[in-house]
Write a protein that binds this DNA or RNA. Structure first.
Length: 156
DNA sequence: GCCAACGTTGGC
DNA sequence: GCCAACGTTGGC
């Protein structure tokens, strides 16, 4: 399958671009997704080598700040089995996991953050799920055209 | 299977 | 911190 493109969100309080840069091999596992639609994207469509934009929400400014790639595709999210974990999910079992995670590596920090404000005013980006009403997906697909446009904006 | 109540997300 | 939008839960 051709390379696909994604956008993932995190609150810097939980995981920031600085945390990402400090991670071993600039790689992290992406756990804690508890939305079925996002889960399906992860489980069924994400492939090693896919491109990922890293977006920071609930901060100032909210913006795409990094370019990453998938280095390991879906495997069971271990936090669902851990009673002590915030993301514990009692109905999931090792035999029948419900939630999945993946590993993602930071390739580069954008020269300039691409803010939500900029995305909203760019006609090429108006169809992104990110700017659609009430969107709450933390993992969403984007098109190659959107990927290219965001990278272009980040360079000037 | 409806739908009210509740919890969460996330921009502002 | 507020609150609108949305997903999930659970009583009936």
């Amino acid at each position: 399958m051709a390379k696909q493109y994604w956008l993932v969100k995190a609150e810097p309080e939980d995981f920031s671009i600085a945390d990402f840069e400090k991670s071993k091999n600039q790689t992290t596992y992406w756990s804690g997704v508890r939305n079925y639609q996002a889960r399906n994207f992860i489980r069924d469509e994400m492939k090693v080598g896919d491109g990922v934009l890293f977006y920071q929400s609930n901060t100032e400014p909210t913006a795409v700040v990094g370019i990453c790639k998938i280095v390991r595709s879906a495997y069971p999210d271990f936090t669902q089995f851990n009673r002590e974990d915030k993301h514990y999910f009692p109905s999931a079992t090792e035999e029948n996991p419900i939630w999945f995670m993946f590993d993602v590596q930071l390739e580069s920090k954008l020269k300039l953050p691409v803010t939500l404000a900029k995305i909203k005013t760019n006609s090429k980006l108006k169809n992104m799920r990110l700017v659609q009403r009430g969107n709450r997906l933390s993992v969403m697909p984007i098109t190659k055209a959107e990927w290219d446009e965001i990278i272009k904006i980040s360079e000037k």
